[in-house]
Simulated scan of single mutants.
Amino acid sequence: MNIYRSVRAVTNASGTGIVDWGAVAEAAKASTPPGELTLSDAERTGYKTDVQDARERLQTVGEVEFDLPDTIEIQNRHHWIDANIETFERVMHPIEEKGGGVFPGVARVANTGTMAFMLSFLGKNVLGQYDPLLLAEADDADHGLYFVHPNIRRVADSLDVDYPRFRRWIAFHEVSHAAEFGAAPWLSTYLEQRMEEGVEALSEGSLDRKAFRELDTAMTSVEGYAELLMDRAFDDDYEDLRRKLDARRRGGGPMAMLVRRLLGLGLKRRQYERGAEFFHAVADARGVATASKVWEHPDNLPTDDELDAPERWVRRVA
């Protein structure tokens, strides 16, 4: 880790955009140890088996058909940062097109530093990721499934939990997202449209509340349904893993807590909880197959009001 190189990359940010993405990548990686990525044969087999078992179990429990992404990678932290730079750049593009304001050089340095800090923090903490490659230019862009191996090992050790079991739990969670996007071919486009509308409005200096509200309810459904499938498909009870991981997320020093708040990670946790309550209520009343109807058509997504009144969604959809 080289903090000096990281700061130098930010302060030397250049180009015509409001973010120097090359400098973001350099600065984020300079301030983030890559982590060990030497895998034993047993670990490689373990990852492969975990993903395959997760697909089979989730298909059975959710009564949904889906394929795994062609791109499945076991990464170190630098690999994860590189994979996500392109996503952040695509999302920011509408805002970048509007220019850098009165002091473009100053804005570029500040924005580059902010993005580098955010990717560095996430790169040190992300365990796994299902990446639908939103806003990718290629129409046939494949989705991706990533496991950040150094973080998985470190967190398993810090929580004092069995590493293979923890790794398998992460695999089941990320593959559950592959189940959702596989069962709903329209979902990527739906999220992209709301994201584009919201970011475009921000670039014009306004706030498209409808687009962001629809994006939030859709992501709440994505996270909540994944929790339902995890509960029904994982090998055993994992309340101990969830409890310890939640305690870890709430812990840390004041700086870590501030960063989580600024990055909206508390909101993401609320999406998990609210979405899980909704889908568990539906599944308990009508079965998992009924809950899976959410992916048959965009109109089947719950509204914000229905998320707190699942019986209304059941009457409308099921």
Rank of each mutant, 00 (worst) to 15 (best):
D240I: 09
D216E: 05
I72R: 12
R250T: 03
S206E: 13
R168P: 03
L262F: 04
T49H: 11
D240L: 11
S292F: 04
L307A: 14
W169V: 06
G105L: 08
P185R: 11
E200N: 13
W169S: 10
A25T: 12
R248C: 01
A27E: 02
G113D: 10
D53Q: 14
N151V: 02
L202C: 01
R165T: 10
A283T: 08
E73L: 11
Y238Q: 09
L68C: 13
R209D: 02
R260D: 04
R90D: 06
S158E: 14
S158D: 12
E63W: 00
K29L: 03
G100D: 01
E277S: 14
K124L: 09
S176K: 05
V288L: 09
E26Y: 03
L135I: 09
T112A: 03
P310W: 14
A256L: 04
P185Y: 07
T217A: 10
R316V: 00
R242P: 00
E204A: 14
A247C: 05
D67L: 12
L263G: 05
R108H: 03
G224R: 13
H297C: 02
I3T: 14
A289V: 10
R154W: 01
D162T: 09
D246P: 03
A23N: 02
W295V: 10
G35E: 05
L127N: 07
A285G: 06
R315A: 10
Y130K: 06
L133S: 13
V294A: 11
W313H: 12
A309V: 15
R194G: 03
L265E: 10
L37Y: 00
K210C: 00
L241R: 04
T60P: 00
E180W: 01
D246M: 15
V294S: 05
V282H: 11
D157S: 11
G17L: 07
A289S: 13
E56H: 12
R315V: 08
E63N: 13
A30P: 00
K124S: 05
D237I: 08
L202D: 12
S31N: 14
E196V: 12
A281W: 01
T11F: 08
L145V: 04
K293F: 02
D139R: 15
G113E: 10
A226N: 01
L119R: 10
A107V: 07
H149M: 02
R44W: 01
V155P: 00
E174I: 08
E192H: 14
E96L: 13
H280V: 07
H93L: 13
D160S: 11
A178M: 09
L58D: 02
Y47D: 03
A156I: 01
P69V: 12
D160V: 03
H173W: 03
D131E: 07
G266N: 15
D67M: 09
V126Q: 09
V7E: 07
R315N: 06
G224S: 09
F103G: 02
G251M: 03
H177Y: 01
D160Y: 00
T303N: 12
A211F: 00
K98L: 02
E86L: 11
S6P: 10
G144C: 11
L159F: 04
G182S: 07
G251V: 03
P34C: 04
D208Y: 11
R316S: 04
I18H: 04
S6D: 05
L133G: 10
S6E: 07
V91A: 12
G252R: 04
D142W: 01
D236P: 01
